[in-house]
């Protein structure tokens, strides 16, 4: 009789509710409890340094070209020793979609994503990060790569003294 089916339905519903009421909730009580994202989680962007302490970013404009929402801008300059660097570097985190294409594009492993997602601000202008806000002292995810050791332009070591280089050609020499 339908009355029994109806009561069964109500009891099944109530039992489902009680079953879940006594279960451990999955809600994490943020901010008292925090979830640990994996190291590759894409959140706050940083500019890293190479193992020798120099800034990795050579302001090559590849990250700003790769960025699908145009939130990165910079201006490159040249130091006394020929090292190319970013005179200023700006990321507008209110536009950033944390896709990671900039980190993928970076040829020197400078720009990297960290799992630090706690960067909310009340004033939107505080989300405009300059180079001082982005540059960190560490190497980030790669402990060994120094782009200038492979570029051959005489910054990390003299011309022709890199591991993959022969000594510079003597133009006026006749010996092969």
């Amino acid at each position: 009789m339908t009355i029994f089916t109806d009561i069964k339905a109500i009891l099944l519903g109530l039992w489902t509710t009680w079953k879940h009421m006594l279960r451990r909730p999955v809600t994490i009580q943020y901010p008292e409890e925090k979830r640990q994202p994996s190291p590759r989680y894409r959140a706050r962007i940083v500019l890293t340094r190479d193992p020798d302490g120099g800034e990795r970013c050579v302001a090559c404009y590849l990250c700003s070209a790769a960025c699908p929402v145009d939130c990165i801008s910079m201006q490159s300059g040249e130091r006394e020793n020929g090292r190319r660097f970013a005179v200023w570097f700006r990321i507008n985190f209110s536009r950033c979609i944390f896709c990671g294409l900039c980190a993928e594009a970076c040829p020197t492993l400078a720009i990297q994503m960290t799992p630090d997602y706690e960067i909310c601000k009340r004033d939107i202008m505080d989300l405009l990060y300059e180079k001082e806000d982005l540059l960190i002292d560490g190497c980030g995810k790669d402990e060994s790569y120094n782009f200038y050791q492979h570029a051959g332009i005489g910054v990390a070591q003299r011309r022709g003294e890199g591991a993959e280089e022969k000594a510079p050609v003597d133009v006026r020499g006749l010996v092969p």
Partner: peptide, 20 residues
């Protein structure tokens, strides 16, 4: 193998020389 390298010249204030 290894790459051959060159030294550059200073060709003046207008043109940069990078022979590598």
């Amino acid at each position: 193998g290894k790459k051959r390298t060159h030294l550059n010249q200073d060709l003046g204030p207008n043109i940069e020389h990078e022979m590598n």
